[in-house]
Write a protein that binds this DNA or RNA. Sequence first.
DNA 1: CCGTTAACCTGAGAGC
DNA 2: TGCTCTCAGGTTAACG
Length: 286
Amino acid sequence: MPELPEVEITKRILSKHSVNKVIKDIEVRNDNLRYKVSSDFIKIIKGSKIKKILRRSKYILFYLDNNYVVIAHLGMSGKFLLQLNNSNNLLKSSFYFDNAFSKHDHLEFIFSDNTKMIYNDPRRFGFFILDKLSNLKKNKFLRKLGPEPFNKIIQKETTNKMLKSKKNIKNLLMDQTFMSGIGNIYANEILFASSINPNKISSNLNNYETQNLFKNIKIILKKAIKLGGSSIKDFKYLDGKSGKFQNEFKVYNKENLKCPRKGCNGIISRVVSVGRATFFCIKCQK
DNA sequence: CCGTTAACCTGAGAGC
DNA sequence: TGCTCTCAGGTTAACG
């Protein structure tokens, strides 16, 4: 489902409702996620309190008071639902399908105040693993992640890496070891904003293009977070509201439409690169 | 080491 | 209606 902005929004909403709650019990309805939910998952978590929830790249980290951290990834279709005490309805506090499929509610975290946090994931590409707080930096998944896009001090180092890469720039942006958090939608939108052709080989970018690209990475992601992320298909969040950034898409899913750039009357093309739909204007993205 | 491909999985929508 | 086909916000093992 989600890229950095959507995961950030999910994290914020979960933080608001689940921090400082004690996990009374966990019901694992289906442990067959991308990685099998470990057999001691319940044992270790049960009775602990969620101290804080952070995001790293597209991962959500639940810091427990027993020195363990739950590392969750939402894959393509994962989402959280919250069931609050004072309501019979699920608070639509994360991305969900309107006709939520209870058959894909795989994990249910039951808090001591009887509110619930449910993990729903039709495609089951998401996963939950546990690690000790002291081991977090060495964690198999977290250790290979590239820097967060908002990290100011890494730009020089990242630029050097970019100028050495023979990958095309779109695939590089989506490479989580290069920089973490950008997925298919935002890679397309960032490159349009930067007037760079997604097929351009990274090492061929000039100084202006790299500077401009870094600037637009921050602008686009910040704007997306501000607008509550992108809700495509019928994903919604927070009391049934949708994210609003999908209304700002310039090229994603805009095949054959007119290029929205002022003065450019090109047509948006769709090509497939590394198995992912790539949208761009051949006229103004060089 | 590097870059690309296939695979993991379910559901929606298009076309017949 | 129902079948088949394609596509979907991600990651990674395996391959050349």
